[in-house]
Design a protein around this nucleic acid. Structure first.
Lengths: 126, 126
DNA sequence: TTGAAGATGTTATAGGATAACATTCGCAAC
DNA sequence: GTTGCGAATGTTATCCTATAACATCTTCAA
């Protein structure tokens, strides 16, 4: 099941909600229950093969192999594409914020919503 | 209604979910419907008097008066307290990331989950 | 073979959010 | 006054997201 879910997510350029996954999986297994999908997502998330997009309640396959820290996500509200990148300076800046206030961060959520280059984000010269 | 919701949120040190708000508001108005709460939350969010915590599906009152840009949120998983702060360097670093990829960000979601100083985040000397 | 661990199935329910349409309230123009 | 408009609210229903609780099955090793 984890394999099925991961396969579906890898075929997407964007993110899928748990229920979108469920609908696709039900094409071949109509009796599939939400639990099963959520359990697979949880396992995949723990293994860092899948990340959750908090601002979208959706999930997408990590394309960065093994990365230890948090990543920065850019989500295009036009085409739905999700870009993931590592940005040590962002994380360093966040560490500074945490240090200033004595906060001990365990998990970072850094997402940008906007428009990607393909959809017109960058200045385009037609 | 917006006033009621804002009042409740301001009395909290942390965030409240829409349905937590609904439950409290129903103490004085048992027939209140979710819609009403969500509508108030939407209006307050647009006026930037309330922010939404994406990683928690919850809402909290802004304590920073008028601030234009995005803010960094620290959420203590111990006591639930939410700290909001501005961090131009974080936003600058994010801008760099966006520039590198031609992404045009419209909205930033930057949240840290962890443990606040009061709950043991900072090194404590007992 | 038995039993422990892990994955799945099943049923039910909790929690979060919005659609669509009706109603009411305040206020300004006539 | 009352007419008419817009904003806020009420109402009903439904959808989406997620988990609890318990049963079953599989696999593999002791």
């Amino acid at each position: 099941m984890q394999g099925d879910v991961l396969g579906l997510l890898r075929r997407e350029s964007g993110a899928l909600s748990a229920y979108a996954l469920l609908a696709k999986l039900r094409e071949s297994n109509p009796r599939l229950a939400p639990q099963t999908v959520y359990r697979a997502l949880q396992a995949l998330t723990e293994r860092r093969l899948v990340h959750r997009l908090e601002s979208l309640n959706a999930y997408f396959a990590c394309r960065h192999g093994h990365h230890s820290g948090a990543s920065i996500l850019s989500v295009c509200d036009g085409c739905g594409a999700v870009e993931e990148c590592v940005a040590p300076d962002v994380l360093a800046a966040l560490s500074n914020v945490a240090d200033r206030t004595g906060f001990a961060p365990m998990r970072h959520v850094v997402e940008m919503r906007g428009v990607c280059a393909d959809c017109g984000g960058a200045a385009k010269h037609p």
